[in-house]
Computed example of a mutant assay.
Amino acid sequence: MDILSDELSRARAQGAVFSVLHQVRPWGLRFGGRRPLTAHILLEGTGFIVRAGADPIPLQPRDVVLATAGTPYEIVSEVGAPTVPIGAAREKPLSAKDLDGPADALVMCGAYVLSGSVGESLLQSLPGIAIVAGRDQDPAHAAAIDLLAAEARATDSGQQALLDRLLDVNLVYALRAWWRSTDAAPGWYRALGNPPIRSVLEQLHADPALDWTLPAMSRAAGLSRAAFAAQFARVVGVPAGRYLTQLRMRRAEDALSRTDLTLAAIAGSVGYSNEFAFATAFRRHHGISPGRWRGNLKR
């Protein structure tokens, strides 16, 4: 079980490029910070990320910026450059003549849609602004950015579809790179470097409905019960039992929001013997019954 792929799939993570902007110095783009997750890639040129109350962050060619919702920000050629809202900048589409002419920067902007509590947990692992520098990208990520840059300058049919798919590829590489550089990575990602805990996590994600007692998880890890419990909590950040409950609740939320399965069927699919045990666990976790939770989604 590839946990990152599973998490992105369950978050319905999907990106779409909404602008490729050819900029001549001095230039500046202004963003409201309202989208859950936005990606910017400086395909050519240099610039700065500017936010109120924070030092400007320099950007180099091929740097990837992931911005979560919150504080408005600007991407500018130099600090103090005049800016225009991204919506206004997008009103002038690129032409082949624009791409062949002189420019100081080529900026690609895209947005990702992530849903449910899985999406929320992924977003919570990121700061307001995360930058994966071009110089730090592994060769495969750099090659994907090269493809993005080439396609951004192309005029062939199918360009939008290719850009969108390459933006999805960028998200996987960027998340890997960012999480490797920070202590704020999700616990399951940190555990991928610990073979016994990784093995258990992969099995939990593959089938959370199994009877996963602490002794069963310990056996799967090949560790004593005490050693497993201590190691899991240290590496993942929460006790194994709590992690399993959180995983089951995320799967239940997904089923409640995206299917018409009965509560009894959902209960069985996430590891509860009946809908009453499931409802009790769900209410303890969310403070609301699963039936009411589903009903609120339809309002």
Score class of each variant (00 low, 15 high):
180 R>N: 12
272 Y>R: 14
123 L>C: 07
141 H>Q: 13
273 S>Y: 11
60 Q>N: 01
242 R>G: 08
163 L>T: 09
105 A>E: 04
45 G>D: 13
3 I>H: 03
156 D>P: 03
199 S>T: 08
66 L>H: 11
280 T>I: 08
111 A>S: 14
210 L>D: 07
187 G>N: 06
295 G>K: 12
39 A>D: 09
284 R>A: 15
77 S>Y: 00
75 I>F: 04
296 N>T: 13
81 A>K: 08
197 I>A: 07
134 G>L: 08
179 W>K: 08
93 P>S: 11
178 W>G: 06
269 S>T: 14
155 T>C: 04
60 Q>Y: 03
160 Q>F: 00
161 A>Q: 11
79 V>I: 09
172 V>E: 01
35 R>D: 05
95 S>C: 03
76 V>E: 00
58 P>Y: 05
188 W>V: 06
251 R>T: 02
108 M>A: 13
296 N>S: 15
19 S>T: 00
281 A>N: 08
291 G>P: 01
135 R>F: 14
266 I>L: 13
185 A>S: 12
284 R>E: 15
219 R>T: 12
193 G>I: 01
227 A>F: 06
248 R>G: 11
106 L>C: 12
62 R>H: 02
292 R>P: 01
245 T>F: 10
149 A>C: 01
234 R>P: 02
213 T>W: 07
2 D>K: 06
137 Q>V: 06
275 E>I: 08
200 V>P: 06
193 G>E: 08
108 M>F: 07
31 F>M: 06
26 P>E: 09
258 R>L: 11
55 D>G: 12
93 P>D: 09
88 A>G: 05
214 L>F: 08
281 A>K: 09
141 H>M: 13
255 A>P: 07
271 G>L: 15
88 A>C: 08
218 S>Y: 10
56 P>Q: 12
223 L>I: 10
